[in-house]
Amino acid sequence: MRSIILSVAALALLGSVGTASAGCLAGAAAGGVAGHVAGHHGLLGAAAGCAVGHHMAKKKK
Rank of each mutant, 00 (worst) to 15 (best):
I4C: 09
L13F: 09
A26L: 14
G18D: 05
K60D: 10
A26C: 14
A51S: 10
A20N: 05
M1H: 14
M56F: 07
A38H: 08
G27L: 01
H41N: 14
A28I: 02
A12Q: 06
C50N: 00
I5A: 15
V8A: 11
L43H: 09
S16A: 15
V33G: 06
V8C: 12
H41R: 12
C50Q: 00
H36Q: 15
G49I: 04
L43S: 14
S16M: 15
G15D: 00
A10G: 09
H36V: 05
A47M: 15
H54S: 03
R2P: 13
G18I: 00
K60C: 03
G18S: 08
A34D: 03
K59L: 08
H55K: 13
A28L: 06
V8Y: 12
A12M: 09
L43G: 11
A20H: 09
A47R: 02
A38S: 15
H36C: 07
C24W: 00
K60W: 06
V8P: 04
G18R: 06
M56G: 01
G45N: 07
A46S: 15
A51M: 12
L11S: 09
R2C: 05
A57K: 04
G32F: 05
A9L: 15
A29C: 07
A22H: 05
C24K: 03
V37D: 03
V17E: 02
A30Y: 02
A26E: 07
A57L: 04
H41T: 12
G31V: 02
H55Q: 07
S21R: 00
A51W: 04
H54E: 01
A46M: 08
C24E: 01
G42N: 10
T19K: 11
L14A: 08
M1A: 11
A22V: 04
R2D: 08
S3E: 13
K60F: 07
L13N: 08
G15S: 09
A57I: 04
C50D: 00
G23V: 03
S3H: 11
G53E: 04
G18V: 01
M1T: 11
K58P: 00
I5V: 10
G18W: 01
H36M: 08
A51P: 05
A34F: 13
L14D: 04
G53I: 05
A47K: 01
G27I: 00
L13P: 04
G53A: 07
G31R: 01
L6R: 14
A10E: 06
A38E: 09
S7C: 13
G45D: 13
K61C: 10
K58R: 14
L44E: 13
A9Q: 07
G45Q: 11
V17I: 14
L6N: 12
H41D: 04
G45V: 12
G23T: 05
A9R: 06
G49Y: 02
A51Q: 07
G15T: 01
A46W: 02
K58D: 08
S16D: 08
G23R: 05
I5T: 09
